[in-house]
């Protein structure tokens, strides 16, 4: 029997979790979809254009198509790693989103960024242990998917 009133409880009663969730959802600002799509298309497209140019140069100079593809991927990974180290890739990524994440350069970026970030904790427990911190899931599920598709192909062909 106290005259004090616990307004926190009242407040929580007045607005329940679901109601609050709706309020937040209604008010939450979202990224503008159209400019995001355009930026992703333009920057992602430019990355692919550079890669295509490099591959064409290999082919013109008489490299076989398989070797040209592999060499192009290696060069693109190198360029992305360099851009990450110079602090350019994250600026591109802020604008382009999926445009910089989806190409192979995005994969190089997350690995180099992690390696740079955790170097302070040493080469074994820092770089070694955390280099695949972000890229790890891509590797795991990429390899699992490759195995499944390999199995399907194996059984379908035999």
């Amino acid at each position: 029997m106290s005259e004090v009133n616990d307004v926190t409880k009242d407040a929580l009663k007045k607005i329940n979790v679901k109601e609050y969730g709706n309020l937040v959802k209604e008010m939450k600002p979202k990224r503008a979809l159209i400019p995001d799509l355009i930026w992703a298309f333009v920057i992602g497209g430019l990355i692919c254009l550079v890669a295509q140019f490099i591959q064409n140069q290999f082919i013109i100079n008489g490299v076989s198509i398989l070797d040209a593809r592999a060499s192009t991927a290696i060069i693109m990974i190198f360029l992305a790693a360099l851009a990450t180290g110079l602090g350019i890739y994250d600026i591109l990524g802020e604008r382009a989103g999926a445009g910089t994440i989806v190409p192979i350069t995005g994969f190089a970026n997350v690995i180099v960024a992690s390696a740079m970030e955790f170097k302070k904790e040493g080469y074994v427990f820092g770089v070694g242990a955390k280099i695949f911190n972000v890229a790890g899931p891509t590797l795991v599920f990429g390899i699992v998917t490759a195995m499944l598709i390999g199995l399907i192909k194996f059984f379908l062909i035999s």
């Binding site: 180290g85 994250d90 802020e94 989103g97 970026n109 997350v110 180099v112 960024a113 992690s114």
Partner: peptide
């Protein structure tokens, strides 16, 4: 995320 990772905010 790591500082240099290209993440959209």
């Amino acid at each position: 995320f790591p500082v240099e990772q290209g993440v959209q905010s």
